[in-house]
């Protein structure tokens, strides 16, 4: 597929290659992410989600197979920095990815690395902070912010590099419900309004129901792939993969076992209410 933004072709990744403890973290993964898509990645602990994510911007290189970003091979040392500009990455721990002592300095860190001239950096920083609704905090120091705010600053740090895609590796795992909601709203808005491609790794099923497509990983392979409705309707398979399903899907599933006949792809409260009231 020529129009893919990120393409994984038969990617294998072996940790500790050549040592006693080789570990196959990715096994023959082939998937492509199209521009503008919102893709959620699910999978239980150790299934290879982070490993997959780190291949998207050359933080890890495939042991065999290849990853193409905008047509550039991540193994090509010449284009590594172009790839990292195109694919931004937000990590789980909000404290360990902010570098500078003030919010605006931190957002400027990426553009500084790209060699953007300084008046242009100023413009990009303000723009990016506005996009995540953090402009009024620009002179705060990171430790004065809540977890959700820190993650939004981290996202702004990516936006300021003008990426085509943002990869988020469990960005909400260490946040409270309010912080989670802030981050998810921001990510969805960037995807819908700015048309930024999103690869969102999460443990929370209700964050995945907004995705265009869901990948479910299991022991280094992609076990399931499809729209949220397609994936979540396979309730028993998901349970077997040690995953939850969204609350409403689980409820519908249990009601069906008691004699109801609700569609298996019920995802949200509204959908369930509508179906029950019919």
């Amino acid at each position: 597929m020529a129009d893919a933004l990120i393409e994984f072709r038969n990617v294998n990744h072996i940790y500790g290659k050549g040592t006693q403890q080789e570990w196959d973290a990715l096994i023959d993964v082939s998937v492509s992410i199209r521009p503008g898509e919102f893709v959620a990645v699910l999978g239980h602990n150790g299934s290879g989600k982070s490993t997959l994510a780190k291949h998207a911007n050359a933080l890890l290189l495939p042991s065999s197979g290849c990853v193409l970003v905008d047509g550039m091979d991540t193994r090509d040392e010449e284009t590594v920095w172009d790839i990292r500009q195109r694919v931004g990455m937000v990590f789980q721990n909000p404290d360990n990815q902010l570098v500078a002592t003030t919010v605006e300095e931190d957002v400027a860190f990426g553009p500084e690395n790209l060699g953007v001239p300084s008046p242009e950096i100023r413009r990009r920083v303000d723009e990016a902070l506005l996009a995540v609704d953090m402009l009024e905090y620009r002179l705060h120091s990171p430790h004065q912010l809540s977890g959700g705010q820190k993650q939004r600053v981290a996202i702004a740090g990516m936006i300021a590099m003008r990426p085509k895609c943002i990869v988020l590796d469990e960005p909400t795992a260490m946040l409270d419900p309010v912080g989670r909601q802030e981050v998810m709203q921001t990510v969805r808005r960037l995807n819908e309004e700015e048309n930024i491609t999103v690869l969102h790794i999460t443990h929370y099923m209700d964050e995945a129901i907004f995705a265009d497509r869901i990948l479910v990983m299991e022991s280094g392979r992609i076990a399931l792939e499809g729209t949220p409705a397609q994936v979540f309707s396979q309730v028993d398979t998901l349970y077997k993969l040690q995953l939850d399903v969204p609350q409403m899907t689980a409820l519908a599933h249990r009601l069906n076992k008691r004699g109801f006949s609700l569609p298996a792809d019920t995802l949200t409260v509204d959908e369930l209410v509508n179906q029950l009231c019919q």
């Binding site: 911007n57 933080l59 920095w81 990292r84 500009q85 931004g88 990455m89 990590f91 570098v99 605006e104 300095e105 400027a108 860190f109 990426g110 553009p111 500084e112 690395n113 790209l114 060699g115 953007v116 001239p117 300084s118 950096i121 100023r122 920083v125 740090g157 990516m158 590099m161």
Partner: peptide, 15 residues
Amino acid sequence: MEARGYRGGEGRTKF
């Protein structure tokens, strides 16, 4: 830092 394109002081501009 690496993910954000950091590669030392070379070719870096200042905010």
